[in-house]
Nucleic acid binder design. Structure first.
Length: 571
RNA sequence: UACCCGGUGGUGUAAUUGGCAACACAACUGGUUUUGGUCCAGUCAUUCGAGGUUCGAGUCCUCGCCGGGUAGCCA
């Protein structure tokens, strides 16, 4: 495992989870000669999402912690749904997350070994070729409460099985005509043990082995053996595979390897206001609910990357939520907290106005502007400062003015005084409205020249501080405001008669423009910053070019005033 | 109804392996602050239920209750 710096985060190293305790015990008892070998085994049939990131951080993280090793293994046993482009994107995403595998492996590299082991099982009388169709297999299998019946082909001789299996491989039979099945027990209370299929005939070109094979191993027959070949000691997978564990162990036992991997299941990740299943993500992409697999509203790693999530945030998040065997759903707030925590420390501050309202400072003449100094990041003095022209006409946010201010309002209102951030205090003298619509058009103010650099010489308190941009040199930039993709916290489990797509948020993407301080024009694609009092933004990688950034909101700032106002209104 | 896995505050994880239920997030109070951001302080659970073992149980035992998973030639 090549080095990845420990994450800087305020989260304490979460106390050890049940998997680490298990490994500690294994190490104590000296199994596997003290080796810890893990693997992340994606099927290359889609893009990685934040749920996969949990497994990635777990496996690679364990390898780091125990100075073990972790492979990336593509579980490419079903060529009909797998593609090279997924192999590529998965590697890119893992590296982006900050991990590097010890070995790059493919299940398809083991097809020969798997075939040989299958013939071994046939010779041992532990596998047989079955002619039943898919529907018949299902019928013979029985149900949850009824036992199954033996296949009529279950007692073929070893010679006949060997011959048939060889001819399956040679392509003498059509797709689905025959299968190789493990000979276990059709009356087992574990349905998985009722003579599971090991090989099916499937003529589709494999992205790596081409047309070399027309029979492909099933997951159950392949996975434990892949682990064994790679010397995996701890094979971690999600909860639903718990049912498969007896079979995982049965195959390994029948092959007779001396040191075998052990499977341990953990709960996969669920997060509020999103979906985390490949099928549903595919639906969102293919039905055009989002732009593509890297749409910034998607929980795919490509989407999160474009959204502006630094990889450290995802790692800190995973460390924070822990690992257990209980199926749970993480509040979106936890993810957003990890995000804000990181961005607060690292993001450069800038000012921009999303809904502009002109503010004219009457006692400051046209050519009389002065430069004010603005701090780039109060959390990081080394980020330095910049100068902004403070001049007669500036833009402020319409949302920061109220004709009739509510209780505890600290912003602009008739006759109210506020400070323009980094600049001077201004007092509203006159509100100019459009005579027809009644809409506020302009605020006429006076400023107090004695109030530079946060000072108020007479000691008066000016509580309100608002952001602004100078009108003469403001730059208009396109902006995308993202919100959660769903309006329901649990779109995964829609009520009767509804589909998860019924809960899509129509305002998950709002396109608008912002008037920005001049320096923002130089933002490079991928650069992140905080628009003060508004939120964290990124110059979108795809939409921006040098000199013309396209801003996109990563996450809004916390807004305790909005919360309070809402509460006031509710009372 | 067969088999497997689970159940600790609003949420997610801890608990020196039988010894004062901790941390984070959220919520609510208050303080600091040139971002109603950040930061700081405080408040918020006797662990699904009932028995049992024990000086002592979230932890061990028994019986319930509740939740999840499994009947692909997907993984």
């Amino acid at each position: 495992m090549s080095g990845v710096n420990p994450d800087q985060s305020k989260y304490p190293d979460s106390s050890s989870n049940f998997i680490e305790k298990m490994i500690d015990l294994d190490l104590e008892s000296g199994v596997d000669d003290g080796k810890v070998q893990l693997r992340f085994p994606p099927e290359p049939n889609g893009f990685l999402h934040i749920g996969h990131a949990k497994a990635i951080c777990l496996n690679f993280g364990l390898a780091q912690k125990y100075q073990g090793r972790c492979n990336l293994r593509f579980d490419d046993t079903n060529p009909s749904r797998e593609e090279q482009r997924y192999v590529d994107s998965i590697q890119e995403d893992i590296r982006w997350l900050g991990f590097e595998w010890d070995e790059l492996c493919f299940a398809s590299d083991y097809f020969g070994q798997l075939y040989d082991w299958a013939t071994q099982l046939i010779r041992q009388g532990d596998a047989y070729v079955c002619d039943l169709t898919g529907d018949e297999v299902k019928e013979y299998r029985g149900t949850l409460t009824e036992v199954g019946r033996n296949s009529p082909h279950r007692d073929r001789s070893v010679e006949e099985n060997l011959d048939l299996f060889m001819r399956m491989k040679a392509g003498e039979f059509s797709d689905g005509e025959k299968t190789l099945r493990a000979r276990i027990n059709m009356e087992s209370p574990h349905i998985i043990m009722r003579d599971p299929v090991m090989y099916r005939i499937q003529r589709s070109t494999h992205h790596r082995t081409g047309d070399d094979w027309c029979i492909y191993p099933t997951y159950d027959w392949a996975h434990g053996q892949e682990d064994a070949i790679e010397g995996v000691t701890h094979s971690l997978c999600s909860l639903e595979f718990n049912n498969n564990r007896p079979l995982y162990e049965w195959f390994l036992d029948k092959i007779g390897l001396e040191s075998v991997p052990r499977q341990t299941e953990f709960a996969r990740l669920n997060i509020e206001y999103t979906v985390l299943s490949k099928r549903k993500l595919r639906t969102l992409v293919e039905d055009g609910h989002v732009e593509d697999w890297d749409d910034p509203r998607l929980p795919t790693l490509a989407g999160l990357r474009r959204r502006g999530y630094p990889p450290e945030v995802i790692r800190a998040f995973m460390k924070n939520i822990g690992v257990a065997k209980f199926n749970s759903t993480i509040e979106l707030a936890i993810l957003e907290n990890a995000l804000r925590d990181h961005l607060n420390r690292t993001a450069i501050r800038r000012m921009a106005v999303l809904d502009p309202l002109k503010l004219v400072i009457e006692n400051l003449s046209e050519g009389e502007g002065k430069m004010v100094e603005a701090v780039n990041n109060p959390e990081d003095p080394s980020a330095g400062t910049r100068s902004i022209p403070f001049e007669r006409e500036v833009w402020v946010d319409r949302d920061d003015f109220r004709m009739e201010p509510p209780r505890k309002w600290r912003r602009l209102a008739p006759d109210a005084e506020v400070r323009l951030r980094y600049g001077y205090c201004v007092k509203v003298k006159e509100v100019i409205e459009d005579p027809e619509s009644g809409q506020v058009q302009e605020l006429r103010c006076v400023y107090d020249p004695e109030t530079a650099r946060g000072q108020t010489p007479d000691g008066r308190k000016v509580r309100g501080i608002i952001h602004w941009v100078p009108a003469s040199c403001a730059v208009e930039l396109p902006v995308r405001l993202y919100s959660p993709l769903f309006i329901e916290p649990d779109p995964d489990n829609p009520p009767e008669g509804k589909e998860f797509t019924d809960f899509l948020n129509p305002e998950s993407l709002v396109e608008t423009k912002a008037l920005c301080e001049p320096i923002l024009k130089e933002a490079n694609p991928g650069e992140r910053f905080q628009l003060e009092r508004v939120g964290y933004f990124v110059a979108d990688q795809k939409l921006s070019s040098s000199g013309s950034p396209h801003l996109a909101r990563i996450v809004p700032l916390k807004d305790s005033w909005a919360k309070q106002e809402k509460r006031q209104a509710g009372v």
